[in-house]
Nucleic acid binder design. Structure first.
Lengths: 200, 200
DNA sequence: GCGCCGATGTATCGCGGCGATACATCGGAG
DNA sequence: CTCCGATGTATCGCCGCGATACATCGGCGC
């Protein structure tokens, strides 16, 4: 989980803990935090496993984009060859471990480094997962609606709508992926393709 | 957290572990699971604290609504006087502990047993919390949008929309609460038919 | 010239919760 | 008559969170 996130980020550039954490927040956004309380232990585990190495001393070229501190980093983490391999391995996974609640967001965040076919399979797996949940909630709601307290009902319905929204989102993403893989790499990198929804 | 949920459920009627878990799922819906791995330890803690007692043997009158097994429950948990007090205490809390991510859903689920004023304060606190987060995401997005990978961006925007949706939902709820507290207890309980408990 | 503050930076601890797992019993379908 | 899925109780290891503790640096006001 965090492991994948760290590998993915370090693959872009070496970072030290603090920046790693900032990137985590910026990348995963609303979806997950990842406090130091899990970051540092994970880093240690990964170091022991040999996926990353700690580089002390100069961190002169740490940051590329904004002003940022730049110099004076203490411990800079970077990927090893084994780490890259491990990352590839994790990014290739297209099973439940990639589309469960906690994991999906992280996998999605690194779709840019993921094989297109795997992307689609993960998106579909996720959607199926959510459709199952949706049906569960729906039938539970149908069975118990009358017995439910006003607020409980409200909560249920809000949850149901959230899931429905998520499913719609995924469907759109899947369609986009499909279109991209059909068309050769032309106008793909547009953030939102202006192309019409396509005649069915 | 789980503690509040358990107290809230047991306040309605005594239950055993398995049913407690089902209700938890039905009540909290999509929002949270609460596996046995946390339920049983919590029950033990609560028993040790004196909020609940274990009742073994007959569970004849456990369930009221559906057919259900009814008889043969093994360990039935019920609230003590202290437990009721503790519940009241928890339901009266209107601070951050009531509107953070993990807690809000549970508090909301038991709004039916919560003081109207507290309800509004929690809803507002929650909304403020989410508005802060929304602004955070927005500015982060504004700063980094151009540098962001296609998928990361997608994730950010989806997250942002989720938060916005949540805020809208809360605003609606708050308005409803306000209207209800102005009007005397007349047509408040639209969702649940007024006092139909025994006349089908 | 100095002190304070917020951002940067590294790190640990306790604990709440999850998923997996292990059993055991019961009613009903085949 | 047997097997299966629902009911039922319970534990274990791991993950991640929030709080907390420090330490340094640059810039701000005074």
């Amino acid at each position: 989980m965090l492991e994948l996130a760290v590998l993915g980020l370090l693959h872009e550039s070496p970072l030290h803990g603090y920046e790693l954490r900032s990137r985590l927040k910026a990348t995963l956004g609303t979806f997950r935090a990842f406090s130091y309380g899990s970051l540092y232990p994970t880093l240690r585990r990964m170091r022991d496993a040999g996926w990353i190495v700690e580089d002390e001393g100069d961190a002169e070229v740490v940051a590329d984009a904004p002003v940022l501190t730049g110099r004076r980093g203490k411990v800079v983490y970077k990927l090893t060859a084994d780490g890259k391999e491990r990352l590839t391995e994790l990014l290739a996974e297209a099973g439940p471990s990639a589309w469960e609640d906690e994991t999906f967001g992280v996998h999605f965040a690194f779709f840019g480094q993921t094989d297109p076919e795997v992307r689609v399979r993960i998106l579909e797996g996720r959607r199926t997962r959510l459709e199952e949940r949706r049906e569960g909630v729906r039938s539970s709601l149908a069975r118990t609606r009358s017995r439910l307290d006003r607020y409980t009902l409200q909560l249920q319905e809000h949850g149901l709508e959230s899931v429905e929204r998520e499913v719609r989102w995924l469907t759109e993403l899947i369609e986009t992926e499909r279109r991209s893989s059909q068309a050769p790499a032309e106008e793909l990198s547009r953030t939102t393709p202006p192309t019409e929804r396509g005649a069915p």
